[in-house]
Computed example of a mutant assay.
Amino acid sequence: MTKLMLLAGVGAAILATPAFAKEGDVLVRARAIVVAPNERSGEVSGIPGSKVGVGDSVMPEVDFTYMATDHIGAELILATTKHSVSGRGTISGLGDVANTWVLPPTLTLQYHFAPEGKVRPYLGAGVNYSVFYSAKATPSLNTALGATKVKLDDSFGYALQAGVDIPVSEKVFVNFDVKYIDMKTTARLTSGATLRTARVKIDPIVAGMGIGFRF
């Protein structure tokens, strides 16, 4: 009877041990992310001493990872964020001059260092294509320049990633992740017949935490 109880206990412990991600698995994560731009702006053409800044954003993110081997995975990251654009330098008195949405699908190739560990760190590198949409001038910009249309060029660049998965059950794990995205754009402000441009490097740090599921 004692042996049977011991075997049953061992079996229960094995079943309770979190299963490890393996070749062929699909990992789905849902994260809350903070997008913090490290922007550098050129001058807005025609307005000496003017620059712009890009504000932070907090949004949800979903990503999908396919494990090609126990160690190598490919991750597609999907999210969209809204950012304010503020005036700096000689136009700092305008406050926010525009806002825009950004759709930055990112594909990274990851290396998972300890696929059978209780803590599973990984590093990734890949590409990002950012689409800027629904950009609008604020009332303060329209007042200063007249009715203004705002357009931002799309961006293509590289992405670097580091993170860790911590399993809590056979199918569920906690995730912490940070990415650096090479992102740049040219803002085009059209006021009547006048076109003003500004080149902006955004280069955000994207930090997130959330929960993941293994399928």
Results as ranks from 00 to 15, higher is better:
44 V>K: 08
36 A>M: 13
79 A>G: 02
143 T>N: 15
31 R>P: 00
13 A>I: 11
173 F>L: 11
25 D>Y: 07
35 V>R: 01
173 F>R: 01
28 V>I: 15
133 Y>E: 02
10 V>R: 10
75 E>V: 09
172 V>P: 01
14 I>E: 09
19 A>G: 06
134 S>T: 04
46 G>D: 13
68 A>Q: 05
179 K>G: 07
2 T>G: 06
48 P>F: 11
92 S>D: 12
177 D>S: 07
25 D>F: 10
122 Y>D: 04
18 P>N: 13
165 D>H: 07
83 H>I: 00
48 P>V: 13
58 V>K: 13
208 G>S: 11
72 I>S: 08
79 A>I: 00
169 S>R: 05
74 A>Q: 04
134 S>G: 09
80 T>Q: 09
195 L>T: 15
111 Y>F: 10
129 Y>T: 04
34 V>K: 09
41 S>I: 09
173 F>P: 02
142 N>C: 11
31 R>I: 01
54 V>D: 12
74 A>Y: 08
191 S>V: 06
139 P>V: 07
137 A>R: 01
22 K>L: 07
120 R>H: 06
109 L>W: 02
57 S>V: 08
180 Y>G: 12
95 G>P: 06
38 N>W: 07
126 G>H: 03
68 A>Y: 11
11 G>M: 14
120 R>Q: 15
30 A>M: 12
99 N>Q: 11
152 L>G: 10
139 P>M: 13
163 G>P: 01
17 T>M: 14
174 V>G: 02
154 D>K: 06
211 I>C: 01
140 S>N: 14
153 D>Q: 15
86 S>I: 06
132 F>A: 08
10 V>F: 14
22 K>M: 11
160 L>K: 01
168 V>K: 06
27 L>R: 03
2 T>F: 05
152 L>V: 04
86 S>C: 02
79 A>D: 00
183 M>A: 15
184 K>P: 00
121 P>W: 05
75 E>A: 10
23 E>M: 12
20 F>P: 00
124 G>K: 04
79 A>V: 00
156 F>Y: 08
206 V>F: 07
2 T>H: 13
141 L>F: 09
70 D>G: 11
211 I>E: 05
7 L>P: 05
88 R>E: 14
132 F>T: 02
95 G>D: 09
75 E>N: 13
134 S>R: 08
69 T>S: 15
71 H>M: 06
155 S>E: 11
210 G>K: 03
204 P>F: 07
